[in-house]
Protein backbone atom coordinates (compact mmCIF):
# COMPACT_ATOMS: atom_id res chain seq x y z
CA UNK A 1 0.00 0.00 0.00
CA UNK A 2 1.19 3.52 -0.77
CA UNK A 3 1.00 6.17 1.96
CA UNK A 4 -1.95 7.72 0.15
CA UNK A 5 -3.74 4.39 -0.03
CA UNK A 6 -3.15 3.76 3.67
CA UNK A 7 -4.70 7.13 4.45
CA UNK A 8 -7.64 6.47 2.18
CA UNK A 9 -8.15 3.01 3.66
CA UNK A 10 -8.13 4.49 7.17
CA UNK A 11 -10.44 7.32 6.14
CA UNK A 12 -12.87 4.96 4.40
CA UNK A 13 -13.12 2.87 7.57
CA UNK A 14 -13.73 5.96 9.72
CA UNK A 15 -16.32 7.30 7.28
CA UNK A 16 -18.09 3.97 7.11
CA UNK A 17 -18.37 3.77 10.91
CA UNK A 18 -19.70 7.33 11.15
CA UNK A 19 -23.16 7.72 12.66
CA UNK A 20 -25.58 10.59 12.17
CA UNK A 21 -25.49 11.24 15.92
CA UNK A 22 -22.33 10.54 17.91
CA UNK A 23 -21.21 11.18 21.44
CA UNK A 24 -18.04 13.28 21.71
CA UNK A 25 -14.92 12.67 23.77
CA UNK A 26 -16.24 14.52 26.83
CA UNK A 27 -19.42 12.44 26.78
CA UNK A 28 -17.27 9.32 26.38
CA UNK A 29 -15.43 10.25 29.58
CA UNK A 30 -18.72 10.75 31.42
CA UNK A 31 -19.94 7.22 30.71
CA UNK A 32 -16.84 5.08 30.29
CA UNK A 33 -16.70 4.05 33.96
CA UNK A 34 -20.34 2.95 33.92
CA UNK A 35 -19.66 1.08 30.67
CA UNK A 36 -16.66 -0.81 32.10
CA UNK A 37 -18.49 -1.67 35.30
CA UNK A 38 -21.34 -3.14 33.21
CA UNK A 39 -18.88 -5.12 31.08
CA UNK A 40 -17.20 -6.45 34.24
CA UNK A 41 -20.57 -7.66 35.54
CA UNK A 42 -21.71 -9.09 32.17
CA UNK A 43 -24.75 -6.81 32.10
CA UNK A 44 -26.59 -6.19 28.85
CA UNK A 45 -25.39 -3.08 27.01
CA UNK A 46 -27.56 0.02 27.26
CA UNK A 47 -28.08 2.58 24.49
CA UNK A 48 -25.29 4.62 26.08
CA UNK A 49 -22.99 1.58 25.89
CA UNK A 50 -23.73 1.18 22.19
CA UNK A 51 -23.02 4.90 21.66
CA UNK A 52 -19.70 4.49 23.45
CA UNK A 53 -18.71 1.50 21.30
CA UNK A 54 -19.55 3.46 18.15
CA UNK A 55 -17.49 6.40 19.42
CA UNK A 56 -14.35 4.35 20.00
CA UNK A 57 -14.63 2.91 16.48
CA UNK A 58 -14.17 6.44 15.08
CA UNK A 59 -11.97 7.92 17.81
CA UNK A 60 -8.63 6.14 18.27
CA UNK A 61 -7.71 8.36 21.22
CA UNK A 62 -10.77 7.36 23.22
CA UNK A 63 -10.19 3.74 22.27
CA UNK A 64 -6.68 4.06 23.69
CA UNK A 65 -8.18 5.49 26.87
CA UNK A 66 -10.79 2.75 27.12
CA UNK A 67 -8.11 0.07 26.86
CA UNK A 68 -5.91 1.84 29.42
CA UNK A 69 -8.73 2.32 31.94
CA UNK A 70 -9.78 -1.32 31.53
CA UNK A 71 -6.18 -2.43 32.12
CA UNK A 72 -5.80 -0.16 35.13
CA UNK A 73 -9.01 -1.49 36.63
CA UNK A 74 -8.39 -5.11 35.68
CA UNK A 75 -11.52 -5.33 33.53
CA UNK A 76 -11.32 -7.97 30.81
CA UNK A 77 -12.77 -6.50 27.62
CA UNK A 78 -11.90 -9.39 25.32
CA UNK A 79 -15.64 -9.91 24.90
CA UNK A 80 -15.75 -6.60 22.97
CA UNK A 81 -13.41 -7.84 20.24
CA UNK A 82 -14.98 -7.09 16.88
CA UNK A 83 -17.25 -4.46 18.41
CA UNK A 84 -14.66 -1.75 19.07
Amino acid sequence: MTADERHLDKLARLVNETAEEEIDCDQFLEIVAVFLNRVARNLDPTAACEALKQHVRVCPECKEELLAIAQAEGVDIACLEGEI
Binding site: L29, E30, V32, A33, V34, L36, N37, E61, E64, E65, A68, I69, A72, E73, V75
Partner: peptide, 19 residues
Protein backbone atom coordinates in the same frame (compact mmCIF):
# COMPACT_ATOMS: atom_id res chain seq x y z
CA UNK B 1 -22.69 9.64 39.23
CA UNK B 2 -23.23 6.66 41.47
CA UNK B 3 -23.97 4.20 38.63
CA UNK B 4 -20.21 3.71 38.28
CA UNK B 5 -17.76 2.46 40.88
CA UNK B 6 -16.06 5.52 42.30
CA UNK B 7 -12.57 4.16 41.70
CA UNK B 8 -13.27 3.35 38.04
CA UNK B 9 -14.63 6.86 37.56
CA UNK B 10 -11.54 8.37 39.21
CA UNK B 11 -9.28 6.16 37.10
CA UNK B 12 -10.97 7.35 33.91
CA UNK B 13 -10.11 10.92 34.87
CA UNK B 14 -6.51 9.95 35.67
CA UNK B 15 -6.05 8.14 32.36
CA UNK B 16 -7.52 11.02 30.33
CA UNK B 17 -5.25 13.48 32.13
CA UNK B 18 -2.14 11.30 31.68
CA UNK B 19 -2.68 10.46 28.02
Amino acid sequence: RSEARFTTWAMSIAVRLSL
